[in-house]
Write a protein that binds this DNA or RNA. Structure first.
Lengths: 340, 340
DNA sequence: TTGAAAGCGATACCAG
DNA sequence: CTGGTATCGCTTTCAA
């Protein structure tokens, strides 16, 4: 039906050149007020909107940021945690006139070395969400295109923003120790990700600082083997000097351990305290309510958006690794240390 | 560092024209084998990839499909249900050489009548995910751009694909009745969405077919007021002839009701059976395991992708409303009817 | 203040 | 089978 209305149509209707139309629409200024009004009226009446392809070709920018998940959309969004981050991202990028391209490593990159959309100039920058192997990240670095690790970090010259796992560890231990806890289990998947490592390190540092004796530690290789985690926890619980608190790398793991503990007859928090990380929506769906480290997800997204945009605008600034503050949330899953 | 390598560079290196390069890369054929090899070699050695902006401008297609959430990313992905749908979508679209643009109504459209990215030709089609008000959908229809309602449907000439709520209702009732249940509560938010309506209708039809007497029905206006749902359920449970089964419009609601029932001391399923819909990952995080209607989410996504691509390729075909089969999954939350 | 024109990178027609 | 060239819609420089 409706003819695609180009900038020429507007120019014709406004009795001016396409250059003037463009000037009115972009570099607002250097156009006479009268002409400006005429152009605006024409734009309005024709319902003209700039065509992205034309514009992008000319300015050599796509005004789009790629959002790359690892390993897949499904796995990422299993953590509702990421939902809110994505929302923060989108809000901020949209406001800046940017669009968001969605892709997962599994579906889009696995056999391509570098994402197709990246190399074709479909995006001006790319945000990585999920636990990307360092090797893969390094591959992406060969491109000039700006990169950002969101809620992740590795030892490579790439911008990143994560939450302050170091501070979190200290705060967790402080609280638990005050409640009489002395023996702990820390559980988390083994990752190259410095974000995760930071959490463990924060925890261990805090214990060391307090001269607490040997710390039980569980750390399992391989993906999602929560059953194995639990087996090890249970073994420790049956030992002579059982841990009284379980600290998990994230809420999903914490909740799962808590449920298994309960099914085995352990009382939480009476016998074992459990602490998570992220403050995922999930934590309110379980009983007892999970104590956890609150991460301001919206802010995480927003900061991520700002960082990638800044780098897109100015590729030369030095690499930035940002740390966002966290807040402890003590709910029902933590109590005084159990003593026989 | 690396100069952006255009089709001209390739042509120069291969000692041929840009037309020939394009021919080699696209309409594979009508080019001599020898030239073809030369071009391919040049492409390889230069690491050339087609620039999307140029191509899209020329062919007047973006090779991108928009994914629009309602109301927001965060709310959509609170249902991990959608995560898998999105994965299916992405897989299929990627395979077809398409990209995915992500946006939410709240952030991108709320003040724009029609999505900016749509009207600017950033997408060739748009998939709507979530319970969009009919009014909004109608607004989108003014564009020529293909639309698809995924896991949603309204009485408008727009393609859609949903699961067979009618069949599900029948299957649920059949099973419950066989277990001795005679009095039920159906709960679900009031929507214009025919997808949801279908589920309720399937349920009611099934009861009618069996000449079961008056059916208790709870249906609340307003968003997310699960507390009010539960209040009504509880009132019914305290009546003379209490329902013995609660059937919910989705797993999230079912799980929440189940938890509240348990906290009030009701035994599930001994005293009340609970049935959900979707087979969300969530259902495995609760005890008893929720009985539900399994929806093949990957397939839903895949079918959605096929439908939108088909319409993009052929805008003239008649509107299609598709119904996908479901499968009942009986787990722990359903048992024989409770009798005093 | 305004406009003519170049050109971004690619496709596709048409002539050779 | 191959290549010259017009063209897609827009931004931007430069001259008027």
């Amino acid at each position: 039906m409706s003819e695609p209305v180009s900038i020429h149509a507007v120019a014709k209707k406004a009795h001016c050149s396409i250059a003037t139309v463009s000037n009115v629409l972009n570099r607002k200024g250097r156009v006479g007020e009268k002409t400006r009004q005429k152009v605006l009226a024409a734009v309005e009446s024709l319902g003209y909107v700039t065509n992205s392809a034309g514009r992008n070709l000319r300015i050599n920018r796509s005004e789009t940021i790629g959002l790359l998940f690892y390993p897949s959309c499904a796995e990422i969004f299993q953590n509702t945690f990421y939902a809110e981050i994505t929302a923060g991202l989108e809000e901020c990028l949209t406001q800046a006139g940017y669009h968001l391209l969605l892709a997962s490593y599994e579906a889009s990159v696995a056999h391509t070395r570098v994402p197709d959309f990246l190399v074709r100039g479909k995006v001006d920058g790319m945000i990585l969400l999920g636990a990307f192997p360092k090797k893969i990240i390094r591959r992406f670095c060969v491109t000039e295109t700006p990169l950002l690790l969101l809620d992740a970090n590795v030892d490579l010259p790439v911008d990143s923003v994560v939450t302050d796992g170091l501070a979190a560890g200290e705060a967790i231990v402080e609280h638990l120790v005050a409640l009489g806890h002395r023996r702990f289990v820390w559980i988390g998947y083994t990752h190259e990700d410095d974000n995760i490592r930071l959490r463990k390190q924060g925890f261990l540092d805090a214990l060391r600082r307090r001269n607490l004796p040997h710390v039980d530690r569980t750390s399992i290789e391989g993906v999602n083997d929560n059953a194995e985690f639990y087996r090890q926890i249970k073994a420790r619980l049956k030992s002579k000097r059982p841990p009284t608190a379980v600290v998990a790398v994230n809420d999903g793991l914490a909740v799962d351990m808590m449920r298994q503990l309960q099914e085995d007859g352990y009382k939480v928090p009476e016998q074992v305290s459990v602490v998570g990380y992220d403050d995922d929506l999930l934590v309110e769906k379980v009983r007892p309510l999970l104590s956890t480290v609150r991460v301001d997800k919206k802010t995480l997204g927003r900061v991520g958006a700002e960082m990638i945009l800044r780098r897109v605008a100015n590729p030369e600034i030095p690499v930035e690794k940002r740390l966002l503050p966290v807040e402890l949330v003590w709910r029902e899953s933590v109590g005084p240390a159990y003593s026989i």
